[in-house]
Design a protein around this nucleic acid. Structure first.
Lengths: 132, 132, 132, 132
DNA sequence: GTGGTCTAGACCACT
DNA sequence: GTGGTCTAGACCACT
């Protein structure tokens, strides 16, 4: 999972989004163990405390459950919950972008053009393969 | 200008975006005075210091120039600079939304659908009229 | 008198320095009228209130005296007072520059070099002619 | 770092100059942490917000980079940037002093005399030792 | 009236 | 602990 440490999005939020996306995409499936706090911290070059906080948030949202001595296990109904959550985040980011465009005096045609350009610039090949 | 005090976007950034959008849209034109720090603070229900910080950033970007005892004046070349800046912000927000969608395993068709839905839910009637 | 409206030195201070320099250089001599507040304001493209404040400061320093219905008259002992004042300002500015250089780790040779360069870049031809 | 709270130079500017000088002189080296906002505030008897503003300016100039939870780190190319910046400030202060002198009717010989006097009155022993 | 600077003190994300 | 953001309110130079 690639973390941008100096971006506008808090690291903690990037971790939550990343794990949730992986669950939504079917990379982590119900019953799977997600990476341990330490492993995730090393892999993402992030402080373990920050990973811990992100995992607590995921547990609060019901996406994973902690099992003593084992780790964090993906919950049974996690995928649909994750997909709903991801959809909300996506809608929210889109709404923000569209409002900025509208406020700057752009019409729908202009925004559509930018939207299509950004879509085309996106590398879609990283799509996770296991989506159900 | 509507400010969301508890959102993820810092208040001073919302103010920067808002004034920049108004310049991009031609609401504030070169030579115009933008609202004074105090007036903007009252209008937006925000602390004057926060407005001051936003105005400093706008000055740093060359969109306005401060004139002591008079106020902040929109710079001659402000509109094109503002439009470029707004376009960058919009691209950035769209890219974030699209990356979230891709990581959650969505295909382009699914995102397009959400994009169109959000566009349709947006109130476009607030478009500023004076754009050149 | 050339005023730089957006410089680090307050306009008010530039006006005080400018008139004091002219007195020190013998351009304005004891008994002379200095330019009226309105004339100075127009000549310097500055607000009359700012000129008024500068003139009050000059009067406080004993360089000029106001004569009702006539204007501001250069005091009898003004030139030596002005020269002392100018010397203090010059010393102060030099001391600031030298302290900056020293703190940045420069030796005397390096500063001397910069000093000589700035001297050579200075246009000395504007020297006032009437110095006593 | 000695701060003069009631001088003509704003406190935050004195802080910017002070840290920049220390970087230019090699006291703070690339990769070093500069004093934390709070530590600097206590050491300089200044409000933490004022230090924060100074550090933001240093970051904007590319001299330091902020790392959340860690502190402000001196940038790799900071020393040469700092030396350039310091040289500009010194030149600017010298030019101001020399213009004042010229306007007051002094010749180069008189100014040279004052310059040398101020140099001799300066305590050079505080020069930082680590300059490269 | 205007913007510019500063103090005092709060809460936040992150290490 | 670290920097980042914000509120509340003061005093300043300038118009």
């Amino acid at each position: 999972m690639r973390i941008e440490p100096n971006g506008a999005v808090p690291i903690f939020q990037q971790l939550v989004d990343g794990v949730r996306s992986a669950i939504a995409a079917g990379v982590y499936r119900p019953g799977d163990l997600i990476p341990s706090v330490r492993a995730q911290a090393i892999a993402s070059l992030v402080n373990p405390n920050t990973v811990q906080r992100a995992y607590e948030e995921l547990e609060r949202q019901g996406l994973v459950a902690s099992k003593k001595g084992t780790g964090m296990i993906v919950a049974a109904s996690a995928q649909s919950v994750a997909q709903n959550g991801a959809a909300k985040s996506i809608k929210s980011a889109l709404a923000q972008a569209i409002a900025l465009a509208r406020d700057a005096g752009m019409g729908r045609a202009s925004i559509d053009k930018i939207y299509r350009a950004v879509c085309n610039e996106t590398d879609w090949s990283e799509t996770h393969g296991r989506q159900s």
